[in-house]
Design a protein around this nucleic acid. Sequence first.
DNA 1: AACAATTATGTGTTCGTACACATTTTTTGT
DNA 2: ACAAAAAATGTGTACGAACACATAATTGTT
Lengths: 347, 347
Amino acid sequence: MKKYTIKDIAKLAGVSKGTVDRVIHKRGKVSKKALDKVTKLLEEIDYQPNLIARSLKNTKNYHICVIQPNPEIDPYWQPCIDGVNQAINEYKSFGITIDSYFFNHADTYSFLEVNKDVLKQQPDAVLITPVFHKESVEVIKKYNANNIIVSTINDPLELNGITNYVGQDLLQSGRIAASLMEMIVPKNKEIIIIHLDEVFNNSIHMQLKEKGFKNYLEQVSNNNYTLKTYSFQQADLDKELPNLLNKSNNISGVFVTTSKVYSVAKIIKNFTDLDIKIIGYDLLDENIKYLKSNAIDFLIHQNPKHQSYLCITQLAEHFLFDKKIPKQKLLPIDIVNSENFDGYTNN
Amino acid sequence: MKKYTIKDIAKLAGVSKGTVDRVIHKRGKVSKKALDKVTKLLEEIDYQPNLIARSLKNTKNYHICVIQPNPEIDPYWQPCIDGVNQAINEYKSFGITIDSYFFNHADTYSFLEVNKDVLKQQPDAVLITPVFHKESVEVIKKYNANNIIVSTINDPLELNGITNYVGQDLLQSGRIAASLMEMIVPKNKEIIIIHLDEVFNNSIHMQLKEKGFKNYLEQVSNNNYTLKTYSFQQADLDKELPNLLNKSNNISGVFVTTSKVYSVAKIIKNFTDLDIKIIGYDLLDENIKYLKSNAIDFLIHQNPKHQSYLCITQLAEHFLFDKKIPKQKLLPIDIVNSENFDGYTNN
DNA sequence: AACAATTATGTGTTCGTACACATTTTTTGT
DNA sequence: ACAAAAAATGTGTACGAACACATAATTGTT
């Protein structure tokens, strides 16, 4: 399969490469005759421009800023950095520079401050994790006004000003947790949902997970379980959870909607006479530890590393090769147990 | 962050770009003085060659041949084509052409014939699915003798002449099946392993899966189950399996080591008085159907699409940007149930 | 010291595309 | 019919790296 170049087409059409160029880029100033001839030829041979040559010509330097919670405060976000770093390595030779900015995921003010800094930089794109719903809407408007591309990961946010979202279907994620719970918890038992350590109202992901979880149990499992929901700050968990367990001896399943599930497992494993199944989120080292010892039964993997990596990839290929960015990319929701976690942590 | 070019470095070092070029490529014929100066400079500014420019210069056309079982005979292999097609689309503008060749996965002769054809083509690389152990070893030697890169997917094969393997850890895959089985099948029941439709001795993947399955139940589950193994051709299944079920009324779990699990589910669902859990492989439409209706409990996803796509990606980036190809890439082993299959089929 | 042989260094072209600029052809107005 | 304006077409150069080739500097030989 021969590769045709602009020069080849020019010769075949009996015109100059300048004319072919004008046709390809619709710059006008071409006679109808020449336009028809070249257009037809382009179609016939299915001309594919050499993207490498094109990219070389456009030797701009693109700048992407990543804004995410500080992984030193919440280790869930560490893989995000790993994904970003992988992308940096991959694209540094292509004229794409990426800077990371961190905020405190429990402090909306720090989020706003960091975004202010980034805005000053006037990058070509920002990749943000909109964990705070209200504040995110606010800053995204500013980026839009400055013609800065806004990519989001991890937390879905319905907003026109967002170019793309890479993450999961969080409602479905809750359903999956419920389907697993149903398999391992006997009927007529009590299952509790625990939201840990985040402000429920401003955090859409916990709401969606809870909704999905209940949704499944209602529709598929015909309400065979007693369901209760609790929101705790981690500091209070040590008192509150034992209280709950002592009060009701019917609790057989716990669904934790965040990566802090290890702190729940830690408490429950001391109640050795109870058989309580635990399902939670994310492959933190601490969680894996309890997964291995079967104190946690399933973890749902949100794949933050792949989220950030993929999102940057989409931006980079857009800048370099003019690929269009899909509005939404939903990653598979991985079910992880003590036997298959390895494949998800080792890359 | 400024991007330095060879020209920049030449100017900074007070030499010509030719000299810088010779230093970078160690072509010799450079005075010690110039060498030291340029080397130091290269280190200082951490020179990264512009891979796009480099790639443009080497405007070779690379040719990859993909050899896989005909998906019209076994639909498991269809996603493989999808992955290849995705890669074709992605790389056709970069001067990489990919051709697909099919053989009958039940006919070693057709495999050898196809490989003979491909060898004549003298491609730069072949991507093969070594489903036949013995014959694969044979053809790989020939490719090696012709300096053709050999990539493998799906079936592991210990051999020096192989450049890389993209696939799964099949022993672990069996263990995962066992761990799930243990969760949903009560103790002291009988579990049977069924190998379907392939010649066991020449097919390493079924052996590994069985070994892993048994391995887990022995080590972790202390042989709480009665285990039996059967090898059937699909044609005989309709007689043999009902026989088995009628004889023993203790069978509560079936592990099918291939994608043909739907044909087992089809038979078992007629035995409405039995509660038999089924675990098998791969997201064939037919399998998904039974998964949705909970006739199949879990499927293990081998992700053939991603296998082929990723493998070609590795080859392409090697040819285009001189990236080194990792000897082995083990994909995560996805656990799929009726709630999360969607994320794996929709991309 | 003169010249060849060797070694070091510099120059120019190519890859395919994009775009600025130069040149030619056609159209318009008088 | 002819100049001027407008439209169409052609030409040349840059992007950054790679490499062939030309030229310059050094070394060795008599």
